[in-house]
Design a protein around this nucleic acid. Structure first.
Length: 422
RNA sequence: GGCAGGUUGCCCGAGUGGCCAAAGGGAGCUGACUGUAAAUCAGCCGCGCAAGCUACGGGAGUUCGAAUCUCUCACCUGCCA
């Protein structure tokens, strides 16, 4: 059986670590306590956080003790982005987001049983510290020169925008978390994204200084497509794990549409399929690319992980109905309705809407201008029929089962409209 | 507190009185090819059917006319105190 480190490595989830030999030895010699932090920068976790959750799953499965930290305090400060200063969130909003994220994390890890994961909030140990205590007891351990060398800080210092003292201090808070968890739970490993390397290692340095102990960091790589662009953006929006923010249908479609050149990489990182299965899917992609077997497997697995099996089955059925070869008129009413509800079913009370109105009402075009443009470009379809007149009104005979229309923009944007006269 | 520079469309960035709904690039959308892929090529890319309207950090002015000039407020950067 391969070690967790080997498992994570072949899956492409290890970018760099502190002293790899020592880390491998520690992981081999018995259960290690590992933590990863999630800051509440939004009401939901997103694609990037998924990578971290998956790493924690592998860790827990290998028998290690997992601590999932939600950043109630670090979220109030904000880690420095290389580009620009963050806008401070209110305490109320941050607290609300902390609650949501706590709930969201639960299905990914085992919180019961023999080796339960632990869920902690760094606000609990950070809030009671006074400014004077902070400066005297903690600040003394940090050298400004070292802090300035962190990549995120350096980038901001050399930018027009500069950096506030608030964000500059972020790394201290994160280091303090690691120290606290080390003392409280014997935590000796922190995981996180590679872009967090500076913040991750700040804790290693602090623990060495005050406790004289060597602890570890494992950073995951930034996952990018063949053009070097980060994954996790769809239509310019983030891919969220919350069903309210990215519907399970949209989530599934995101993975289905992944380029061939990246699908193997993603299967390794985001699914639990074996090397043999993935090799098989890779072969299938080369031999019968139009079948999209690898993308289907990827989309099904990841959607099931995030949204559960029933939601995934519904979404697969919907995709099959809408993108299948069958004549839409042949799809039975219940199936069609269910499919359209997945894509978003919009009620239209106007009994005779124009093509432009339908594109708008279905959310496929943001404005009338955009809708007209789409028609002019030849990208507007009603029930798979290309529409050429923006002002055309579909006749009653076109309504599927007397009331549904499948509106499509381009090859892959589909939405449903239900005409509810009266 | 003083002085200097900056704030342009989703992002970067040009534009210093009319020819500016604003160059160029990126992102994005659509078409062709194909496979709900990539690459390539082409078109599009504020709102409006249109007339026109709204927009270049906020506000007030000058002018026939302002993204461009003046005043003022806010924020950012740098230098000086």
């Amino acid at each position: 059986m391969p070690s967790v480190l080997e498992e994570l490595r072949w899956r492409g989830l290890v970018a760099l670590t502190t002293d790899e030999e020592a880390l491998a030895a520690a992981l081999a010699s018995g259960p290690v306590t590992v933590y990863c932090g999630f800051d509440p920068t939004a009401p939901s976790l997103h694609f990037g956080n998924l990578v971290q959750l998956i790493v924690l799953r592998w860790m827990q499965r290998a028998g290690h003790r997992v601590i999932c930290l939600v950043g109630g305090s670090t979220g109030l400060i904000g880690d420095p982005r290389p580009t620009a200063e963050r806008v401070l969130k209110t305490r109320e909003q941050t607290a609300d987001w902390v609650d949501r994220i706590r709930a969201q994390v639960r299905p990914f890890l085992e919180f019961e049983g023999e080796n339960p994961a632990l869920l902690v909030d760094n606000l609990d140990w950070t809030a009671p510290i006074s400014a004077l205590d902070f400066l005297r007891d903690i600040g003394k351990h940090f050298r400004v020169n070292a802090m300035l060398r962190k990549e995120a800080v350096a980038a901001r210092l050399s930018s027009e925008e500069g950096i506030s003292y608030t964000e500059f201090s972020y790394q201290i808070l994160q280091a303090l978390d690691f120290l606290h968890l080390y003392r409280e739970y014997g935590c000796t490993l922190q995981t996180g994204g590679q872009d967090q390397w500076g913040n991750l290692t700040a804790g290693v340095d602090l623990i060495r200084r005050v406790e004289g102990a060597g602890v570890h960091v494992l950073a995951t790589p930034l996952i990018t497509d063949s053009a070097g662009v980060k994954f996790g953006k769809s239509e310019g929006n983030a891919v969220w794990l919350s069903a309210d923010m990215t519907s399970p249908y949209a989530f599934y479609q995101y993975w289905i549409n992944v380029e061939d050149a990246s699908v193997v990489l993603l299967l390794k990182a985001f699914t639990e399929r074996s090397a043999e299965e993935i090799a098989e899917l890779e072969r299938a992609t080369v031999e019968r690319p139009q079948a999209r077997a690898a993308q289907r497997a990827l989309a099904a697995d990841v959607t099931a992980l995030v949204h559960g099996r029933p939601a995934t089955d519904a979404v697969i059925r919907a995709s099959r109905a809408l993108f299948g070869q069958d004549d839409l008129a042949a799809v039975d009413a219940a199936t069609l309705r269910a499919a359209l509800e997945e894509t978003g079913l919009h009620r239209v009370s106007d009994p005779s809407p124009t093509v432009v109105a339908l594109l708008r009402e279905s959310g496929l075009a943001a404005s009338n201008s955009e809708a007209r443009r789409t028609v002019a470009e030849g990208g507007a379809y009603l029930n798979n029929r290309r529409m050429t007149d923006p002002d055309e009104v579909p006749g009653d005979a076109e309504l599927l089962h007397g009331r549904y229309l499948v509106v499509r923009r381009g090859k892959r944007h589909v939405a449903g409209v239900e005409i509810s006269a009266g």
